[in-house]
Design a protein around this nucleic acid. Structure first.
Lengths: 198, 198
DNA sequence: ATTATTTTTGAACGATCACTCAAATGTGAG
DNA sequence: CTCACATTTGAGTGATCGTTCAAAAATAAT
């Protein structure tokens, strides 16, 4: 029974994510989504309920992708601290990536939607909190493993790392910043490594 | 000859700036502007030419305000480096301010408009560059005055400071971050002070 | 084949979008 | 008082906004 979905739902969602990530919420119209997803408005509303619903799903999918990214750096590194540092340093080539935007989608959303779409802004805010929490947990594990100085504050370091990354990614939105971005990312990675216990 | 303008042009511009700063470019409609400025569409188009024209004027006005702000901290401080540090530290109460947005308007614009309004994005990008340049010049003056270590790179420090501030201001867009923001701003001010020559 | 169920299609809705322009209004010089 | 002119007013432009929904199409069980 039942007709097949025209496209795999993951593929559909990832196209929506690209579009929203690139253009933001308000600048992306349903028409844009219809052409990008190659679906009629009815199909989109049947699956997501509203434009805001598509956005929320896209944002969650984006966050999951970023989570996986960090995990990869951690599992590829000898120590936890080195994993975090490698992740931080990975932003050195931010400007050369062919992503929909150099800025993080959660970050873009939390600033764009603050005054106009409080519910969606809250979703983005919570996802960023979860990311910060994740950073903090890894710092905490590193401390337990004796990699970090005893007087380190993992919760603060989580907030600090998130703010640092936000800074670099926002700075990278300016024109001709590739070189500086590399320097900034290198500097950040070094500061993370300098947290190491003596 | 000629009828008087209904309002002082500075007042008009500052209201437009508040609105765009708060809501961003795409989420702000001409209707919004008409009510906020208490002006008909004809008047607005006569003065600014287009919605983009209003935005550009608002952005320039915003940038001038920020420039003045930094100058104030510098003239109130004994040394140049201390002035910069005081400015950096001033973001400790970012969340308590009653500004239209905790995030910087240039920063919001450069991320929001990248894909959809390249001309306006370029305006924001250039204004941010001018700000970075201003930071760099002050660092350079500080170095010449012997306040900074000889091996300091003022141009890099300008970029670094801008990215740091961007990070804190974006982080502050999340909910319940007032305390963390204070810690981050204090930390930044301290790092600036640590640039001092030994 | 028929039926039940799911999905797609796309025309259409009222609201709002950025913007235009002719007419009204106010102002100071002569 | 009159006239020249800058400015405001606000109705109206066509286009696009997010959304709805009835009808068509596709699938799988009976």
């Amino acid at each position: 029974m039942a007709r097949k979905e025209k496209y795999d739902s993951d593929e559909t969602l990832s196209r929506a994510t690209s579009l929203f990530w690139m253009q933001g919420y308000h600048a992306t119209s349903m028409k844009d989504l219809e052409t990008a997803l190659d679906l009629g408005p009815g199909s989109i509303y049947a699956r997501f309920g509203s434009k805001a619903g598509v956005f929320e799903a896209a944002l969650n999918s984006y966050a999951a992708g970023r989570r996986a990214e960090l995990e990869k750096y951690l599992s590829d590194s000898e120590t936890i601290l080195e994993g975090i540092a490698a992740y931080a340093g990975s932003f050195r080539n931010l400007c050369e990536r062919d992503a929909p935007s150099v800025a993080c989608m959660m970050m873009k959303s939390v600033t764009e939607l603050h005054a106009t779409e409080p519910k969606l802004q809250a979703v983005a805010s919570h996802l960023l909190d979860a990311t910060e929490e994740m950073f903090a947990e890894h710092f905490d594990r590193a401390r337990s493993a004796g990699e970090l100085r005893e007087d380190s504050d993992p919760a603060f370091l989580g907030a600090w790392l998130q703010a640092e990354i936000m800074g670099i990614r926002t700075y990278a939105q300016k024109a001709n910043t590739a070189e500086r971005v590399s320097q900034l990312a290198d500097g950040l990675a070094e500061r993370v490594r300098n947290l190491k216990a003596v």
